[in-house]
Design a protein around this nucleic acid. Structure first.
Lengths: 173, 173
DNA sequence: ATGCTTGCAAAACGTTTGCACAGGG
DNA sequence: CCCTGTGCAAACGTTTTGCAAGCAT
């Protein structure tokens, strides 16, 4: 894990990746470089396939498997962070720049809002100390209604859109 | 969402499920009853297929699809809680009995430890208030080394087993 | 009697792997 | 030059869906 908290220029990240690869005896190939570049062009939360699509749009012939094999390297290197929401597929976000944060997910509109997590880190440390656990990372998310949705739908009981039609009962997620 | 915090006798849960189904105009069928019973026999964290296997062991001919269609109902009803760890498949646990808790996951041995989350709930509420977000649920997990593993491996840098052999580079996670 | 619910099988989904070839150290 | 990395396609395991038949209301 590199410390990239204050580096966020593409050149710095590319160099960090190169150093990481060399340090681990992994080869620095065109495909890996292209995948890093694609990933740097994506913002917010993105999935593996979005990186792949971007590569194809740019005319780069990179295989899906290579993307899936490279993303874990970028995570391990500290350039990306893996984030999992209520879906099964993995999402990624940049691990540099903006400080540590966590996520609020609106069950109604799906919007994901970030919030800074100093307090979370502190709480995390306190609980971990109590259990003799050595923390290296955490995930804190909460679910509910964002402000806009709670205005449109003032009932506290969270009636999901699918709730209003009986036929959608099984497609809820 | 029903309030089942203090009910944990099988009969109470069965009745709660029946009421939930009726209230939502969903039919109370044998398959659904059997799935509830199977789920009540499972403890800790379990996956959909474990419920299915248990049903088959008991000689009940229930389809895999029906299990997958019923688990969300049990979650919505408040009997089950869906938990996702670093794997892609969904895990479930009982939502009744033991109070609200969160999870610590050891990256080395995979052990999952629970801890009570009063402080987490409070923090959750505080952050949510600041963002005008209406919380209905949360997920708080941290990752790292459990006590036993941190003794076996005193280096703080968390050398994963896969880290020690270069050939495992890509099969990590 | 109506139409929700079922079991089955097959599809869908994101992800992983086996393989022969390409290319970096 | 060797051995790692690649693209392709096929496999993977979990979850979803289409369908005809079954069953609760």
């Amino acid at each position: 894990m590199d410390e990239l908290h204050n580096l966020h220029r593409p050149e710095d990240l590319r160099q960090a990746f190169r150093k990481y690869l060399k340090r681990h005896g992994i080869k620095h190939t065109v495909a890996r470089r292209k995948i890093l570049d694609a990933v740097l062009e994506l913002h917010g939360h993105f999935e593996a396939e979005q990186a792949l699509n971007l590569l194809h749009e740019h005319g780069h012939n990179v295989g899906k498997a290579t993307v899936y094999r490279t993303l874990p390297l970028l995570v391990d290197c500290g350039i990306l962070k893996q984030v999992r929401f209520e879906v099964k597929q993995a999402h990624y976000e940049h691990a540099f720049g903006e400080g540590p944060h966590d996520h609020m997910i609106c069950r109604r509109c799906g919007r994901i809002t970030e919030f800074a997590s100093e307090d979370v880190l502190e709480l995390c440390a306190r609980i971990a100390r109590r259990h003799h656990f050595h923390v290296t990372g955490h995930r804190f998310q909460f679910f509910g209604l964002c402000w806009e949705c709670s205005i449109r739908c003032p009932v506290a009981a969270l009636p999901l859109p699918s709730e209003t039609e009986a036929s959608h009962r099984h497609t809820r997620e």
